[in-house]
Simulated scan of single mutants.
Amino acid sequence: MPRSSRYRGRFAPTPSGPLHFGSLVAALGSYLDARAAGGQWLVRIEDIDPPRCPQGAASTILRQLETFGLEWDEAIMWQHTRGDAYQQALDQLIQLGLAYPCNCSRKQWQAFEIYPGWCREGVCDANKPVAWRLRSDLGKRPTCWQDRLFGEQRFDPAELGDVVLKRKDGLWAYQLAVVVDDAEQQITDVVRGLDLLDNTPWQHQLQSALQLPQPRYLHLPLIVTTEGQKLSKQNLAPALSENEQGVRRQLFQALEALDQAPPQALATESPATQLHWAIANWSLQRLRPTAHRQTPASMPPSTPSSVPPGD
């Protein structure tokens, strides 16, 4: 698929719950980077894991984005409709010898830091359901790229392990889906949280194997709680306030978290006015490449939970 010459960015939340302040910072960063470049900004709903996606959560997220003035271009892509495309990509990887079936359980290899590749030459138990894994030890290694904020990155995918592409229960896994969908939407620039930085080597490996273009990457510093935990749905981060005063305050705080130094007078302005200023003044040079940010003092601390984090 040919690469688009125009900037095309995206925000791709998992609808496991409403957006929180960390989500807002990620969405705002990707939105401003796209709009400041005169590009397009798309929204993709990554709902490939139904048990994690309660009914109505996606609608809540879309309403929140609209409330904060983050308007998207083009129709929304829903990952739950994309199974055929993912299967086609997996079939290509199987033909290339880069994907293999595996029926090992996490309990079996819990003594290892990463999955040791026991099923690479054949499944260990032919009577058990299988997942499909990517062979991380093949292809160009290490993988290198230039992150727009954190600079040169170098990872050996084999040191990260053979990531799952399709689960034993038949559900598609994140790594394959995100690569196929970024290519389908002709995404040129991926702006997302620092917690996904070490996902990029697998995605580069998949892009190379499937002969898909590689976007530029910008990983944003994480928003953390006062206890130092990543602000996330996993830790039951509070949902964004959607009353008028709360929206203005949180949008202004998100601009501060992105180091954009908005003038204090902007804090009481409408989302449209704040975004107009932010697009005109967006500066990657202001953004400090530090790993964490403290949440605003007005945000309550999170409480740990067992819910896995979304994208």
Rank of each mutant, 00 (worst) to 15 (best):
S4V: 09
S4G: 14
S5I: 10
Y7G: 12
G9K: 02
R10I: 15
P13D: 05
S16N: 15
S16L: 06
S16D: 12
F21Q: 02
F21N: 02
L24M: 10
Y31R: 08
D33H: 14
A34E: 10
G38V: 03
L42R: 01
D49C: 01
C53Y: 04
P54S: 05
Q55W: 07
L62G: 08
W72G: 12
A75W: 01
I76H: 01
W78R: 11
A85Y: 07
Q92M: 12
Y100T: 04
C102K: 00
S105H: 04
S105D: 13
W109K: 09
R120F: 01
G122P: 06
C124H: 06
A126I: 15
K128A: 14
P129N: 12
A131M: 09
L134N: 07
S136H: 04
S136P: 03
D137A: 10
L138N: 02
G139D: 07
E152D: 13
G161P: 05
L165E: 13
L165G: 11
K166V: 00
W172R: 04
V190T: 07
V191E: 03
G193E: 04
D198G: 00
N199G: 11
Q203D: 14
Q205H: 01
A209I: 11
R216Q: 14
R216H: 06
Y217N: 05
L220A: 12
V224A: 15
T226M: 01
T226R: 05
G228M: 08
Q229S: 10
Q229A: 13
Q234K: 10
Q250L: 08
Q264L: 11
Q264M: 05
P271D: 13
Q274I: 15
H276F: 09
W277V: 15
I279Y: 05
L284T: 15
R288G: 02
R293P: 14
T295R: 00
P296A: 11
P296R: 03
M299K: 01
P300D: 11
P301S: 14
P304N: 08
S306L: 06
P308D: 04
P309L: 10
P309C: 12
P309K: 07
D311Q: 03
